[in-house]
Design a protein around this nucleic acid. Sequence first.
DNA 1: GCCGTTTTCGGCCCGACTGTTTTCAGTCG
Length: 572
Amino acid sequence: MPLHNRDIAGQFDEVADLLEIQGANTFRVRAYRNAARTLRDLPHSIIDMVEAGEKLTELPGIGKDLASKIETIVKTGKFPQLDKLKKKVPAGLTEIKGIAGLGPKRVEKLYEALGVEDLKGLKKAAEDGRVRELSGFGRKTEENILHELETRGSGTRRSLLSEAESRAEPLVDYLDSIDGVDKVVVAGSYRRRKETVGDLDVLVSCTKNSRVMQRFIDYEDVEEVVSQGETRASVILRGGLQVDLRVVASSSYGAALVYFTGSKAHTVQVRKMGQEQGLKINEYGVFEGNKRVAGKTEEGVYEVLGLPYIEPELREKRGEFEAALDNALPELVTLSDIKGNLHNHTKASDGSATLREMAEAAKAQGWAYLAITDHSKALRIANGLDEERLAKQIDEIDALNDELSDITLLKSIEVDILENGSLDLPDTILQRLDLRVCSVHSHFGLSRDKQTRRLLRAMDNPCFNILGHPTGRLIGSREAYPVDMERVIDHAKENGCVLEINAQPQRLDLDDVYCKIACEVGVKLAISTDAHTPHHFGFMRYGIDQARRGWATAEDVVNTRSLKGLRELMTR
DNA sequence: GCCGTTTTCGGCCCGACTGTTTTCAGTCG
């Protein structure tokens, strides 16, 4: 029985693939994919909705038919339609469809003509030279299939945004230096600041047809050229990251930027709105008949649609059009709004710098305050502080603050939330601190109900200020622990607690979706670097990115406040 | 299969590149 929205979404995607291979109506196929996306984006459990008897048809892309299918899946754990489809065609065909260059038509042909049912069969057929005999296929296609089968797995992983940045920045500098190049920007999910990036979509505008395409192919990190044309090319960089380059004239720059920034769902909506007004929108501009009415700037494209500029981080079709039409888009928080950092470690636990080094580095960032939040004693592996050591650190910070100018160290702790929801240190010492970050570092495997009650109980303690890395996830390596985050958010609201956006690139926890809910409910956020060395202060901008994707304004974030304002928010 | 200031039918985003063709289908983003 599926437990998560994404399980049901996965089944819908599978139905879409199988229908497509059978040559079903493409719009019907799209309907399943749209519904799958809706389910993945949904911040709460679809199962809860079904059990509460809520109307699923109010969700975008879910009509009467799909609503009843979801109900069947939730109530019986079975999806008869999918089972039926699998009887008609082998389920292994969906993995063949995952091979680059093989879409529904070719997969169907491979199956019908050669009896290829899975990757193994495909490999055999290609090695035997039977693929090239099929009409519509050829020697080259067969070679590509074999190449794909061999190199699979290496380049399919999504990269952390921070990793992608380290590849993108030198490439942008390189392209920027080419004669005739006007602007270079990395669009796609990178520009939307998504936490992971599948590939890099680089957009270049140039005045005249420069030699940018050839120079791109010549870039020293290019390992393989996948495709190359006049205005588009795809390459694989060493390490496996794919880069797609698109070259447009400066007059089309804005339209191309909207188009290549995406998300796909966002740009589809942009074009739809254009169509409703009798306009054709593509990457070259906005056209009324043959006349270009916009396209040089992004602002211009949105303007002809009667919309204000929409920030890239909001372009996920998660309500940005409705908000834009209402003139209710949020004024997103920026890095320069940040006045301090509320989660940081020193040598006292598992950090590598002293109090003074951390303070000086924070001052250099232009921050007014820095909370020192070493671990508490339960986290023995990190040399967590007991009552006595914390008392000593309190005295050290008091002494240091007397010496320091333009920066204030805040006495704090990252105190463990124990299995039963109590905090790892007695209230008597916690009360002597300026604020407390409370985190889960153990017992990730509790049931959803127990985990939720653990967090709620912790928040009942008046010493509780900030919930550190609220779901415990590590992107790509550890799932969030099961917890009813909506209840946690509501409880935080009732108790004046703050939720952290942990800015470590592999955490970014809260994620964008919960961040948006927190802001809607009126729960405040703390964007913190969880620094273990001063070098980690640079992570702040990733936290900002995530907050912006979650529609957060400066008002929503506690560490945009002055020290005085912050202290007020940390008093319950 | 969804959706509706042109509502219960008839629409549903749009263009580039490749490999196969000999004018284009298939795939991709």
